[in-house]
Design a protein around this nucleic acid. Structure first.
Lengths: 223, 223
DNA sequence: GGCGTTGTTGTGCAAGTGTATAAATAGCCT
DNA sequence: AGGCTATTTATACACTTGCACAACAACGCC
């Protein structure tokens, strides 16, 4: 119960704490992504973002020249996290190239990469790539980086099979496999409950191996 | 040169013509799609849309209860055109199932289905499917319709090869092939100039046929 | 403890938003 | 030709938007 001495300062100014610059920018970026995921770019206003970050709108202008800059930084952060997670599945020691490829596909077709929120963000931003050159370039770089990773693993897999593809063939494999992963990723994000757990990953591995012309690993499946 | 009798009605009201209701709604929907493609949902204001349609903003409210209804109708129109075009490639008389499947893949991986503007629209709208249930349902129906088409053709192709897949296997094939087409479609829309004409379609056909376990048609390729 | 720095708040403003509504006029009917 | 009516324009309004700026207070430093 409040003490009798209740000052009741009608026009009390809000209490606040000074966070580090790093932390505040991070919070604002996260709040931006949350706002965009929930209400789209149209609903991501400086006030909505600030409210979610637990600050007032004016503070945004203290850390970013304008709202557009905050959006760009948020998009960059999103892309960074996505590619980072995707590539993380590739660092496996003591695994055959084929196992690493399968692990890569599996990682990309399960949580947390299969995620409706991330998909909404990706779609919302990428939808403006056609009009915004800076967004288009950011996507292009992320896409090529991803495809190069795929190409590198494919080269290892085929080398282990004593096959010597030329550059053009390797490129076609990478394009196709990238498409398979992307397509299944979208299906999973948009209608995840239509698939049983692990089903998309199983389909992905099977399709990718068929694309590469690998014989089914009977000894593993039949046991 | 103007005649001497220049009335110069300073506050002249704009001349206009009365178009039919059908035509006006169509124009407004088209203008809406143009605005969204160019400036995103945030930039698609009633005034922008009206300006593009050659009318004034107030008229929108005469044909639609609110802006949201116009947007929904525009999305429905977009989806309708996309699936219509995609399915059109399937109506081929006097063609083997395998040829029809190849034609289907080819049609989906060339203009006008591979198109940056359409992709921008698709991404912009689909990005809100996570938050807007009506959008999510619209997509779900379109997706399942498309996948069922694929499944039907796949069944014919396999039947012609004397293979009897069960329902689960057929479903997996349709999911995988749908993913291949979607993934390549995205790659083509976002970075069309990175691929030579027909390259995506060639990759798509090859990957789809590998997924189905069809033997390469040597007699056609080697000639 | 006092003080300066600066992160943070609160308020204000011009431009833009969707919507409501009155005024005008184009085109059809007789 | 002259009116009727529905289409279209134009204006108004309440509200939101991004941004500018002054006041304030949290924290480090002496």
């Amino acid at each position: 119960m409040p003490d009798a001495a209740d000052p009741a300062p009608m026009n009390a100014r809000r209490k606040f704490r000074r966070e580090g610059e790093e932390r505040r920018r991070q919070d604002l970026v996260d709040a931006t992504l949350d706002s965009v995921a929930e209400h789209g770019l149209e609903g991501a206003t400086v006030r909505t973002i600030a409210l979610r970050a637990g600050v007032t709108a004016g503070l945004i202008r203290h850390y970013f020249p304008g709202k557009e800059d905050l959006l760009q930084e948020a998009y960059a952060a999103l892309m960074g996290r996505m590619t980072e997670q995707a590539k993380a599945a590739l660092v496996m020691e003591d695994a055959s190239p084929r196992q690493r490829l399968a692990a890569f596909v599996t990682a990309n077709l399960n949580a947390p990469i299969i995620d409706q929120r991330v998909f909404s963000l990706w779609a919302t931003f990428i939808g403006r790539a056609g009009a915004d050159p800076s967004l288009a370039r950011a996507h292009r770089e992320g896409y090529l980086g991803f495809r190069n990773e795929v190409e590198a693993v494919v080269a290892e897999v085929l080398a282990a099979e004593r096959r010597k593809p030329d550059a053009a063939e390797l490129r076609r494999h990478a394009i196709a496999i990238n498409a398979i992963i992307d397509g299944l990723w979208i299906e999973g994000c948009l209608a995840g409950e239509m698939f049983s757990p692990g089903e998309l990953a199983a389909i992905g591995i099977k399709t990718v191996e068929a694309e590469l012309g690998l014989v089914p690993p009977e000894q593993f499946q039949e046991k």
